[in-house]
Simulated scan of single mutants.
Amino acid sequence: MSETTRGAKGGLIALAVGTCVFVLVAWFVHTYERVERTVTLPPVGEAAWNPLYVLKQALKADGVRVESRPRFNLPVSALGPRDTLVLLDDPRYLDAARAQALLDWVARGGHLVVRTPPGARLSQHEAMPVLDALGLQVKDPGACEPFQVEGDERHVEFCRARRFVFAEVEPELSWGNLRDGYVYARLTHGQGHVDVLADVDFLGNGTRARGDRPASGGLHDIPHRVLARQILAPNYGQGTMHLVYAVQMPSLWRTVLARGWPVWVPLLVALLGWLWARAQRFGPPLPAPQPARRSLLEHVRASGEHLYRYGKGPLLYAAARKAFLMRLRRRDPVAAALSGEPQVDALARRFGLPAARLRRALQVPTQRERREFADRISLLMHMRNRL
């Protein structure tokens, strides 16, 4: 194949590839349609953990000095005489000294916004220093309260919220009745005011807009904005607005258990697997070892049985006869000095035994005399013990 033919073939291949690419690009441009889509991202930063973030930004936009913090760690002496303090969380976490200091600050012109304890169950003797000092008694949760704003649709508030009643206290403003309990009251305390609410969820951030669904809940609703403006009215724009969205932070261990399980569960499984791999393997249970025997008689008896079983009976007899003769020499030297029949006669008279039996006992038994073996040794031991 010549160089010209090769060049023409390569050009045709390049032209075909270019044509395919052009057709694909033209088809994509002709069929592609540019569409704008709004994606709601999850809140980040302070908006992710501060439930009063929307209220904070709204107050700043209105020119109000505002500060927010997760817990009430600010000294009461640092609060100004025309400041407002909003406590979003359970007021039971304030002790008696802290509660009295807050009420003293309110008496100097401050404004305190506090709620009743949340939850379905409440102990009858549980201390609530702030509410007790104001003369309020907490009741069980009740039904919803209607709240109608002119030009807006029907709305209800404080559903399943814990209500309260007054004990020798005359409120400046109140919402509710004595039979069912009150959901809101404004009490005058010295030169300041205390607003008590059954719930403060209307001050929260609410839900963000998603797709075609607009933002709702919290300060996104018109009735909630109207109610919030009325609650914050006494010192509005006169001092600093302090927003405390959690009087007590959750414990570290509870947070780790509730939110850190994707980390600690695999680590726990890995630890258990490592312990199982490193653990000692045990076989079947063995019987308990026999306790050590310390009886000398048992050892002597076992040794004698062993010697007798293996044909060493004459050694046992020789030891018994030697022990008898040694004691005889110490106790009766005259009889021990004799031998033969005179010795047999002397021993027969001393022990009162037949001479024939004594004669056999002093003779070494043979292997065939197994039956008389035990009788001879028994007789020698008997005479030894009588000496």
Rank of each mutant, 00 (worst) to 15 (best):
G11S: 14
A355V: 04
L325I: 13
A355D: 03
R69K: 04
G304E: 09
H242E: 02
E67M: 14
A279T: 10
E305F: 15
T84G: 10
A161E: 08
R208K: 07
W274M: 12
P365D: 09
A16H: 05
F164K: 02
R225Q: 11
Q238E: 12
R6W: 10
T40L: 01
E33M: 11
L187R: 01
C20M: 15
V156Q: 11
K139Q: 13
K322T: 11
G211M: 01
L134C: 04
R294S: 07
P75M: 03
E67C: 08
F158M: 05
T40D: 00
L380G: 04
S339P: 01
G206Y: 05
F147D: 05
G80S: 10
W49V: 13
Y236R: 15
G237W: 09
K9A: 15
E298T: 11
R278M: 11
R370I: 10
F202E: 10
D375Q: 15
W49H: 14
V256I: 13
Q124R: 14
L243G: 03
F147A: 10
V23I: 07
R278F: 10
P141K: 05
L362N: 00
T19F: 15
R376W: 06
L347W: 14
A161K: 05
E372G: 12
L131I: 07
A356F: 00
Y182C: 03
L173E: 11
T255C: 07
N385T: 06
T31I: 10
G304N: 06
R186T: 05
V263P: 07
N73S: 05
R34L: 09
L79G: 09
C144T: 08
Q57Y: 01
Q191K: 10
A185C: 13
Q238T: 08
A356E: 05
Y308G: 02
P223W: 00
R6D: 07
G190L: 03
P75Q: 04
D132I: 00
V263S: 12
P262Q: 01
Y308E: 06
L315S: 06
P70H: 01
L328H: 04
P223R: 01
R278Q: 12
